[in-house]
Every structure is written in structure tokens, then in C-alpha cells.
Design a protein around this nucleic acid. Structure first.
Lengths: 246, 246
DNA sequence: GAGGTCAGAATGTCCTGACAATCTGACGGC
DNA sequence: GCCGTCAGATTGTCAGGACATTCTGACCTC
């Protein structure tokens, strides 16, 4: 059933075996070697072929099921999902997304300063009211056109964030580079009409539809590391999300 | 460290042990017995206390990590996430969401008929061009106010869908009841201004901002089972999503 | 021919055991 | 006092095995 799907394993590599397997299956799906709807070998056979144990194979498959590339059914087998998953459920910033799409993003920092935390932001970030936080306001461009206005609040001392760095890279990239490991994010997505000031920044007319997103991100210690409130030009941007039921 | 967190296990129940553990930890978090930021006992100790093996405990914890309730860190331990997760990454319909929020949803079926599939919908659902599919158009109300216009395309013969049933329940609920097991969904979320006709249906003014969502849902065999294109009144509704990085 | 029954196949759950990688905090040397 | 080292704690990875549950399709009975 399966094409003979060659998978190389490097046992001396620090990359976990289950991950090596998962990556190479995912690659085969992307390449088209594993057609949508086609069945994978069963877990025991796969384990046998690769000289791995069944739990390891299961972990690899589970990883891809969680990413929405594969689907399993007890008593039947594991199949490749029809219709490709556009993008996985990843914690990426707009900047990363745009660059990956070849859009050549640019950023203009409008504000970057410590300020006392707002009373409605403080509980979200788990801070004392009146504490100082870093406030960032940026205008994001893609292909020369203004695309979004980004407002962020971050705990001080999390990462050294300078205006130059922020104009050169995405916020998430800078945080990751500073050792912050983001794990969970809550997002609320809505829409509203542009105000006069927003319209001017974004080269839209007043009342033009804007996509709004409010997001709070937590790290692997469960601490809030970032709160953002963003507006996007609906005419130029939309969000993509993949949901997976377990 | 942990409150003494009593967990009852029923080994004769068909509910998997790892799931029983996960549910009761989640319940303790919701109740507040496990405060945000507090640490769980380590896996080996927990396994010992409950008379289970470590892999089973790990599976329970992994389940909650995937839902965004817990966060782990190697060498440190497992902690409850600060700031509650509003809603988990579930495959729910608008109807389910509204009812859970106590909004008392109602539905008016505008169209319900088989029709030849559009040429741009056919490849999405994996159908031959020209094949017949079921087209559904509904107006959804919450608390007496119009909230959204829902357009759906479904393969014929998937489930017996009558107008009466659709006015009484959500589409997802009906599909689940017919044995369809949905697993993966791709959503694209955007915004645009309301047309004259849309405004009339939704009691808005022309040009009012609308939230748009296009979604394709796949079942556990990887087959597309539903494609929908929906518009929501941005003034009355927003979407909530939780992202988890593994 | 319709329907029920049963065997095979596949994933789901659970166990035991072992070692690796990583983080924290304490200790000790400079 | 500062910095590096080291040990303990904890999660991450991997192996191998056993049995349960569920689905499909073939076979048999009526």
C-alpha cells in the first residue's frame, strides 16, 4: 500500500528518533510520495521495518496526527488527510508568517517605552497594579504597503528589546532568541470599523473593516510573557487556523 | 507542594485510566484546588500514589498540556498555567458555543437543497465537478437578535438533514449524531464590509464590519465532510482560539 | 437475498524497566 | 564576592510485551 518510503535514522544524532521519523513522513507527504487518502503501513510493521519499537512509531504518528497531517482509526489504520493543511497550529508572529510567504515585511516602531501598567492589563499579565512594563507600538508593512498596527505589553527585563532590533526582526523571534519559550496563547479575533487615526496609518478610509486580534502568550513556566492588541487591514490580510480534535 | 488532590480511579470503567486522571486534575484546576502557577507532584510520585505506571500518568499530563492547562519543563516539573484558558481548541459549531454561553440560539433555514457542486468547491471536498451536493443556508439568532449567516456544502448521504432538525440543533451536533467523527478543520478568518443584502438579514447598516470564516472539516478517515463560508456581525461576536506549541 | 456471526487486522490502553538531557541550587575554589 | 562545578531532581526518550477494543469483510444461516 505504502510506497517504499525510505526513512533514514541517525541514532547518534541528538534529534529524537520519533522526531526523525515524523519529519520524514511529513516530508514525504509534502513531496507527494504519500498521496492524500493513502494508508500508512501499520504500526507494528513500520516499527519492524525501521528497527524501532512500537511506542516510538506511535509517538511519531501521534505527532503528525496532532499537526493535522494524519488521521487514525482504530481497527482500520492510519491515513493521510485529504486536502492539505495550510499551516499548522504554530505560535508564530505576523513577521514570521509574512517572511515565509515571501512578502518581505518591514516594521516602523512608533512607541517603545516603559510605562505603568494599565489596571485592566495588570491582571492579565499577573502583575501588581502600578508596576512598570514595556509598551511597544509598531506599524507593520508588507510589500511596501501598511498592513497592521501592533500594540504589545511585556514584562520588563524579559529580553533586551531595542527599536533597531524590532525594526529588523519579529517580536517572537527576538523573544525566542532571548531564551523565552512560548507555549500557550489565547487569542480573541474580531472585527470593527477603522477610526480616523487608524485609517490614516493604514491607508484606508474611515470605517473600513479591520480584523482585530487580542492575544496573551504564556511560557513553559506558565507565566504570561506578552499581551498584544493588534489591528489588520481586512482587505490585505486574513488569519489561518487549524483545529484538531483528539 | 500539591494539595492532597484526591483522585478516584474506577478500573472497571470503560473510560481509560489516563483520561480519568486528566479529567480530575482538570476539574481540580477549574475548582481552584490547584492554583495557577502551582506545581504538580512529579510523575513518578504521582504514579506511585495512584497505583499507576508512569506512562499512564504522562499520558494524562500530556493530554492537559495539549489542552493548554498545564505546562512542563524538563528538570523542573509540571505547573498549572497562569491565566485561564478560555476555551479549548475544540471542534464546535457556533450553535454549541452559544448554547454553552446560555445565549439560547435559534436558527432559520433559508435554503436546503441538493445542487451541482461549484467548480471551486468540488476540489475542496474531493468531488468530481458536476456532482450533486447538499447546500444549506441558515440565519442564526442569539437572544432574539440575528447574529450570523451560515453557508454550508456537504456530501450527499452523509447524514439525514431536514430543515426541522437544522432549526432545532447545530449542524455539528447532527453530524456527530449520525456517526460522523470530525477530527481536523482548516479555518480562514477575515473581515469585510456588509453588502446591502447581508446588512438587511443581519439588521446592520451597509458597510458595517463583518467577521468572515471559511472552514473545511475532515473526518477520521481524512475525508472532507463539510465546507462552510460564514459571516458574523462583528458588533455581536468574536472568535476565540487557543494555540499550543509542542 | 438479507441479515447476523465470526475471524482477522489494526489501533488503543497499560505495564515494567532503563538511560539521557536539562534545570536548579548548593558547594567550593579563586 | 564571583564564578564554575557537581549532584539531585525531574521530565524526555526508547524498548518490549500484553491484552482490549473496534472496524471490515467474508462466511453462514435462514
Amino acid at each position: 500500500m505504502t510506497a517504499n518510503l525510505a526513512i533514514d535514522l541517525d541514532r547518534s544524532s541528538p534529534v529524537p528518533l520519533y522526531f526523525q521519523v515524523a519529519e520524514q513522513i511529513a516530508e514525504a507527504i509534502r513531496r507527494g510520495d504519500l498521496a492524500p487518502g493513502s494508508r500508512l503501513d501499520n504500526e507494528i510493521l513500520l516499527a519492524d521495518k525501521l528497527g524501532l519499537s512500537r511506542p516510538t512509531i506511535r509517538q511519531a504518528i501521534q505527532y503528525l496526527v496532532d499537526k493535522g497531517l494524519l488521521v487514525r482509526k482504530r481497527g482500520v489504520g492510519t491515513q493521510v488527510v485529504h486536502g492539505q493543511v495550510k499551516r499548522s497550529v504554530e505560535l508564530t508572529s505576523l513577521y514570521d508568517d509574512l517572511r515565509r510567504a515571501g512578502q518581505e515585511p518591514a516594521t516602523q516602531v512608533l512607541t517603545l517605552e516603559p510605562r505603568p501598567v494599565d489596571e485592566h492589563i495588570a491582571p492579565i499579565l499577573g502583575l501588581e497594579p502600578g508596576a512598570e512594563i514595556l509598551y511597544v507600538e509598531r506599524l507593520r508593512f508588507a510589500a511596501g504597503e501598511p498592513l497592521a498596527v501592533l500594540h504589545n505589553w511585556l514584562p520588563l527585563g524579559l529580553a533586551p528589546l531595542g527599536a533597531a532590533a524590532l525594526e529588523d526582526r519579529g517580536l517572537y523571534e527576538l523573544l525566542r532568541g532571548a531564551g523565552v519559550r512560548m507555549r500557550v496563547a489565547n487569542q480573541r479575533i474580531g472585527a470593527r470599523a477603522a477610526s480616523q487615526a487608524e485609517a490614516r496609518l493604514l491607508h484606508e478610509r474611515r470605517g473600513a473593516p479591520l480584523l482585530t486580534m487580542v492575544r496573551t502568550t504564556y511560557d513553559d513556566q506558565g507565566r504570561a510573557v506578552e499581551h498584544g492588541s493588534h489591528i489588520y487591514r481586512a482587505s490585505h490580510y486574513s488569519l489561518e487556523v487549524t483545529l484538531i480534535e483528539r
